[in-house]
């Protein structure tokens, strides 16, 4: 994901001379240093100073720059929430909501692995989606990263994009051109617009709403459900947690009668909460949330990350089981 982000940034840098990239001593890890080599004047590494990272970005944005600021999730919403709120989201020049800063974090969620619980950010979706003017994006694969980077660069306003640390299986297939348009591996209509969910697989008996690394798991879970129980499972990629696609959710609730959510985040306040908030107001159906159960993470070596996820129930098998076990509200 980080490589895709880095390449997308360079494309944006070529396209727009006002694109500036900021880092905080994680620029090799996030691979934004490549942008720095390409555009040395437009790249600032402020050292291990995340508050300064965010507020300097705000200052640059206030003067017309499109700023991408990146580090690990645990050090962005996890550390600099005051600066994010008061310096980026709150100032609204000429009535436009917030400043033009894109906070892009990697190392979101449990899949951070070996670094342990101190580095596994499980609260960021919750923090970021409660801040007015922020839009929150969670890409499922490198294609989504490229497309969302493009989208954020071309749309005014503050964004938070949360990437996973480790390699994720492709959901949207090869040949992503960064345009955000086109058909993915599923053949479904997939576009990366804020406020939209992608229906990756149609289904009529239940829905799994996922984001980030859980999207590919959800597709596996759908396969399992069909194979084992002939249950037809719809899979939604909720890459835009805020704004959330209430229309697609309502349709899923109405047509499939039950919704399971899965994310590598605390179930309090995360994508699952956002889905529940939306559906309970539009078309209430039984909902089950999978995620960290108000708990912290812990170390797991790379090969053991599935075990860590499993401890919190984040597996295709559990997703299939929980989705199948949910009481289904019949279509009215």
């Amino acid at each position: 994901m980080r490589t895709a982000y880095s390449e997308a940034l360079i494309r944006e840098g070529n396209r727009n001379p006002d694109v500036v990239v900021m880092g905080a001593d994680t620029t090799d890890s996030l691979k934004t240093s490549k942008f720095g080599r390409e555009f040395p004047d437009r790249f600032f590494n402020v050292g291990i100073a995340e508050g300064n990272l965010v507020t300097m970005s705000a200052g640059l944005a206030a003067s017309g720059k499109t700023v991408f600021a990146s580090t690990y999730a645990i050090f962005l919403p996890g550390r600099a929430v005051d600066q994010i709120r008061n310096n980026v989201a709150y100032p609204s020049p000429g009535g436009r909501g917030g400043l033009n800063v894109k906070l892009v974090a990697s190392h979101g969620g449990l899949s951070v692995g070996p670094d342990g619980g101190s580095h596994q950010q499980l609260e960021d979706i919750s923090i970021m989606r409660t801040i007015p003017n922020f839009r929150v994006m969670i890409p499922a694969d490198t294609v989504a990263v490229s497309a969302l980077t493009r989208m954020m660069a071309s749309e005014y306003g503050p964004f938070y994009m949360r990437m996973a640390r480790s390699k994720t299986p492709l959901v949207y297939g090869e040949g992503g051109d960064g345009s955000g348009a086109g058909a993915g591996a599923t053949g479904a209509d997939t576009r990366f617009e804020a406020g939209r969910a992608n229906v990756l697989r149609d289904g009529s008996d239940c829905t799994i709403a996922a984001c980030g690394i859980t999207v590919s798991m959800a597709l596996e879970a759908a396969d399992l459900l069909w194979r084992e129980k002939q249950t037809s499972c719809r899979v939604l990629d909720m890459f835009s947690v805020k704004p959330i696609d209430g229309h697609t959710l309502e349709k899923a609730a109405r047509q499939t009668g039950r919704i399971l959510t899965a994310e590598e985040h605390n179930i309090i306040g995360g994508m699952g909460s956002a889905v529940a908030e939306s559906v309970s107001e539009s078309y209430p159906v039984p909902i089950k949330r999978i995620g960290a159960l108000d708990a912290f993470g812990e170390s797991a070596r790379d090969a053991e990350v599935p075990l860590l996820l499993q401890k919190h129930g984040i597996t295709p098998f559990n997703m299939a089981q929980q989705a199948g076990a949910l009481e289904r509200l019949p279509e009215r």
Binding site: F44, L60, P91
Partner: peptide, 22 residues
């Protein structure tokens, strides 16, 4: 600058100054 939360205006100023230089 939307001031209020203290300690941030200098970072903001550095950003504004760098933008002017760019």
């Amino acid at each position: 600058f939307c001031g209020g939360s203290l300690g941030t205006g200098l970072s903001y100023s550095v950003g504004v100054a760098l933008a002017a230089r760019l």
